[in-house]
Amino acid sequence: MALIGEDVANQIRERLSTMVAPVKIVHFTQELNLEYGRETRQALEELAALSDKLTLEVYDFLIDKEKVAEYGVDKVPATAILNGKDYGIRFYGMPAGYEFATLLDAILDVSKGESELGPESREKLRQVTKPLHLEVFVTPT
């Protein structure tokens, strides 16, 4: 059974039609992580099918050690959103409910290669000279 219904799929298709550059979704799953893992992967497969500019790569957290290291993933399910460049944007867990919209936002922003932040914010962010790691905890609503 599809996780993304036809109506929602059409809305997503429309949003994704504004994509600029192709975006790659890199997903790490784990055989044992069944509760959410399977659904997360299925949702991403259905999503990737909604735009020619979206591709999905799936790796196994326990087997594909090189990719795990390359993307700095330390838990699963993990999902990285990138264009040619990896901006350090990650989702851990299933992006359901409101977070699915956040995932679409991330895809569209990465596709553009720039945020829609105000000029003042962007200037301040350019001045950051040390590693800054943000972990935002959310729940599906």
């Binding site: 700095g72 838990k75 901006y87 350090g88 991330a106 800054l132 943000l134």
Partner: peptide, 27 residues
């Protein structure tokens, strides 16, 4: 959540994780 990801887009030193709390009780 989107803000953190937008920050990450603007500077390579910035990384942003969106973590589904119910799936990672230890964290």
């Amino acid at each position: 959540m989107r803000l953190a990801h937008q920050f990450a887009l603007e500077n390579d030193l910035i990384t942003a994780d969106c973590i589904e709390a119910t799936e990672f009780p230890d964290l």
